[in-house]
Amino acid sequence: MRTDGDNWDIVSSVGRTALGVATFRALETARPDALIEDEFARWFVEAAADPHFVGLLADPSPLEDTPFFFPGFMGIRTKFFDGFFLSAAAAGVSQAVILAAGLDARAYRLDWPAGATVFEVDQSKVLEFKNEVLTEHGAHAKVDRRPVAVDLRDDWPAALAGAGFDPGRPSAWSAEGLLPYLPGAAHDALFERIDGLSAPGSRLAVDGFGNGADLRRFEAIREKYFPVNPFGDMDVAELFYEDERADPAVWLTGHGWSVDPFTLLELAADYGVPVPPLPEELADLTTRSTYVTAEK
């Protein structure tokens, strides 16, 4: 269960979800029709040596019996945020901020323009693990990468400024797989701070489940339709907060941002990913799984 001020490393609590996401990116990368290419993801999983996730790398077949292959979902999500950053960079936005960066390797994977800077914000133990693995493998970022070790429930704008972030320049922000893990107050403060730090022309991409979603349903639905929990013995929903919070799309629109929403099924169609007929409960979850891009 979550507590105020809790923290984690890469194999515990919220940190372990980042390890799971890296596993699913690695599995998606290995597929012949992969939507993404992330050679770094496997390094992180192998270095962490979590038995469940290492086992899935060796044999992903248990996930293939699920109604919607989980790594394929992660491929869609990853491609969405990849495209967001590449589009922003092509439009001349040279300052990017990845909030709750986890084991994200976009600073190494994507082709950033000259002069771009990528700030990776996350807890110190997560960033330390990530840096150790990348150093061990001799990886080199394709951009000016600046890790920012801070908890997003704390004064992360000050830490970001200390790393050289310039609020006078347009920025591209991402909050990928983050929002349910924040208490309502921190969730709303996140958008207020992003808005206050964003010069005109800034962009933002977020994903979530929309207001009114019963996040505790996830484990019941998982047990009903998924023979194997993709996250092993961890109930991810136990890490979520369900207290009151603003709807991101509504909040951003009300603060002068131009907003474009998408559903998981719309993205799947755009990317040419076939989705089989789903049981009603799973189909409902796909419609509640929302993706938003916004421009100030």
Rank of each mutant, 00 (worst) to 15 (best):
residue 203 R to Y: 00
residue 233 D to G: 11
residue 239 L to M: 11
residue 168 G to I: 01
residue 241 Y to K: 04
residue 160 L to R: 07
residue 186 A to Y: 00
residue 204 L to H: 05
residue 229 N to C: 10
residue 210 G to E: 00
residue 163 A to V: 01
residue 150 V to R: 03
residue 195 D to C: 03
residue 212 G to K: 02
residue 167 P to R: 14
residue 216 R to L: 14
residue 170 P to M: 11
residue 205 A to M: 09
residue 209 F to M: 11
residue 181 Y to F: 14
residue 199 A to L: 07
residue 191 F to T: 05
residue 242 E to F: 00
residue 194 I to D: 00
residue 159 A to F: 14
residue 159 A to M: 04
residue 196 G to W: 02
residue 199 A to P: 03
residue 237 A to C: 08
residue 217 R to L: 14
residue 221 I to D: 09
residue 155 D to S: 15
residue 221 I to M: 12
residue 149 A to T: 00
residue 240 F to K: 06
residue 244 E to F: 12
residue 190 L to K: 06
residue 244 E to G: 04
residue 218 F to T: 13
residue 187 H to N: 07
residue 213 A to V: 15
residue 243 D to M: 10
residue 226 F to T: 06
residue 233 D to L: 06
residue 200 P to Y: 09
residue 220 A to H: 12
residue 183 P to H: 10
residue 207 D to T: 09
residue 171 S to H: 06
residue 230 P to C: 09
residue 200 P to N: 05
residue 181 Y to K: 01
residue 212 G to N: 01
residue 217 R to M: 15
residue 177 G to W: 04
residue 244 E to C: 07
residue 176 E to T: 06
residue 227 P to Y: 01
residue 228 V to Q: 14
residue 245 R to G: 04
residue 207 D to P: 08
residue 216 R to M: 15
residue 234 M to Y: 08
residue 164 G to E: 01
residue 158 A to V: 07
residue 209 F to V: 10
residue 170 P to E: 08
residue 156 W to N: 14
residue 216 R to T: 15
residue 219 E to H: 10
residue 200 P to H: 03
residue 171 S to Y: 11
residue 237 A to Y: 02
residue 166 D to L: 08
residue 161 A to Q: 14
residue 165 F to D: 11
residue 239 L to R: 02
residue 232 G to I: 01
residue 181 Y to Q: 02
residue 220 A to W: 00
residue 232 G to Q: 05
residue 185 A to S: 13
residue 225 Y to A: 00
residue 222 R to M: 10
residue 167 P to N: 12
residue 216 R to K: 14
residue 247 D to H: 10
residue 234 M to W: 05
residue 161 A to F: 01
residue 187 H to W: 15
residue 180 P to E: 04
residue 244 E to R: 11
residue 159 A to P: 06
residue 221 I to V: 12
residue 182 L to I: 09
residue 243 D to Y: 11
residue 203 R to H: 12
residue 228 V to K: 01
residue 152 L to T: 06
residue 215 L to Q: 02
residue 223 E to C: 14
residue 169 R to K: 13
residue 150 V to G: 00
residue 239 L to H: 06
residue 206 V to L: 08
residue 233 D to M: 01
residue 247 D to I: 04
residue 214 D to K: 12
residue 227 P to L: 02
residue 238 E to R: 10
residue 156 W to H: 14
residue 169 R to C: 05
residue 167 P to W: 04
residue 213 A to L: 09
residue 203 R to A: 13
residue 241 Y to S: 09
residue 201 G to Y: 03
residue 197 L to A: 08
residue 243 D to W: 09
residue 220 A to Q: 05
residue 247 D to G: 11
residue 227 P to V: 01
residue 182 L to G: 02
residue 183 P to Q: 12
residue 204 L to C: 07
residue 236 V to K: 05
residue 192 E to L: 14
residue 160 L to A: 04
residue 192 E to R: 12
residue 225 Y to T: 00
residue 179 L to P: 03
residue 185 A to I: 15
residue 195 D to S: 10
residue 178 L to M: 00
residue 180 P to S: 05
residue 156 W to G: 06
residue 151 D to S: 13
residue 245 R to E: 02
residue 174 S to W: 00
residue 182 L to T: 08
residue 243 D to L: 09
residue 204 L to F: 04
residue 181 Y to V: 08
residue 242 E to P: 02
residue 246 A to C: 11
residue 228 V to L: 15
residue 206 V to I: 10
residue 182 L to H: 06
residue 232 G to W: 07
residue 202 S to T: 01
residue 196 G to T: 13
residue 220 A to L: 11
